[in-house]
Amino acid sequence: MKKIALLLGAMLACSLTFAATVDTISIFSNSMHKNIQCVVVTPNSYQHSQAHYPVVYLLHGYSGNYGDWVKSTQSMVKSADEMNVVVVCPDGAFGSWYFDSPVDTGFKYETHVAKEVPAFIDAHYRTIARREARAISGLSMGGHGALYVAIRHSDVFGAAGSMSGGVDFTPFPKNWDIAKRLGSYEANKALWEQNTVVRAVDSLKNGTLAIAFECGVDDFFIQVNRNLHSKLMEKKIDHDYTERPGRHNWNYWGNAVQYQLLFFRDYFRKQGTAQQ
């Protein structure tokens, strides 16, 4: 029994040694004139080397915040550690949809995520400060935000993904505070449409971004994701699209994020920016 106890103790010590570090930091937003919190996950190897690392930005959903990814699924933290990437989880507030609102000047989360957060992270962490070493993804509202921001800022991000993303919110004119950010759908249809991912891809050229997105077949966003896939196929834009059994919940996203991180790791390897 003593030998078994010693063995278990050694195994526990090893598991604790090889673990990512999770920090909560505050980033001042010049565009919104306030401090905004953010989670940064660094792999275990970051603490023991002077190497520079690629970064994956993960965005939360409508009713969530910057802490959701680490609070709701340990699979992300474990995968970040195993794949040797830094993961950054910015805050997108309650219902920002990650665009700069023309209605509420206090909501400039496109600017925050696309410019302010990467600039801060590159200045304070050992990152590879190039688009070829930056990827962005998210769930639900954050899935929309990740693709929307990446398409509009392909000089910042080289790869983008989405999990259960609200990639076209025009079929849902009464939901999720979108009218607070864009005005009513009835009076502002053109404004609504131009702030969706499905419209943003009109400006996208093949090879600009490495794209992977997915949705559960029992998710209420499944049809808008299928529509996005069809549009990308029509435009001959290379991308990975996946449907699996699943609903709009953490059981699905905890699994999906592992595939997203694998896709990004492969992208970083192809770009020569992966940390081995």
Rank of each mutant, 00 (worst) to 15 (best):
K2C: 00
K3G: 00
A19Y: 02
T24K: 12
S26N: 14
H33E: 15
K34W: 06
N35G: 10
Q37L: 07
C38P: 01
V41G: 01
S45Y: 01
Y53G: 03
V56D: 09
N65R: 10
W69A: 08
W69G: 01
W69F: 09
V77E: 04
V86T: 09
V87A: 08
V87P: 04
D91F: 13
F94Y: 12
S96I: 00
P102S: 12
D104F: 05
T105W: 05
G106T: 14
G106Y: 10
E110M: 14
E110N: 12
A114R: 01
V117G: 05
P118S: 12
A119I: 00
F120G: 02
I121E: 02
I121Q: 07
A123F: 07
Y125T: 06
A129T: 03
A129N: 15
E132W: 05
E132T: 05
R134A: 08
A135G: 06
L139E: 06
G142T: 04
G145L: 02
A150D: 03
D155T: 11
V156W: 10
A159Q: 07
A160V: 07
A160S: 13
D168P: 02
F169W: 13
F169N: 03
P171L: 11
P173C: 06
N175M: 15
D177W: 15
K180E: 14
N188A: 07
N188P: 00
A190S: 11
A190G: 00
A190N: 06
L191E: 13
V198Q: 11
V201F: 10
S203L: 09
S203Y: 13
S203Q: 14
L204T: 09
K205F: 09
A210K: 13
A212F: 15
F213G: 09
G216R: 05
V217K: 13
V217S: 14
D218G: 05
F220S: 12
F221K: 02
V224D: 03
L228C: 03
H229R: 05
S230V: 00
S230W: 01
K231I: 09
K231C: 06
I237E: 07
I237S: 07
D238T: 14
G246E: 04
G246H: 03
G246F: 02
W250T: 04
W253R: 07
N255G: 02
V257C: 03
Q258F: 01
Q260N: 03
L261D: 11
L262N: 13
R265W: 08
R265L: 11
A274W: 03
A274E: 08
Q275D: 11
Q275F: 08
Q276Y: 03
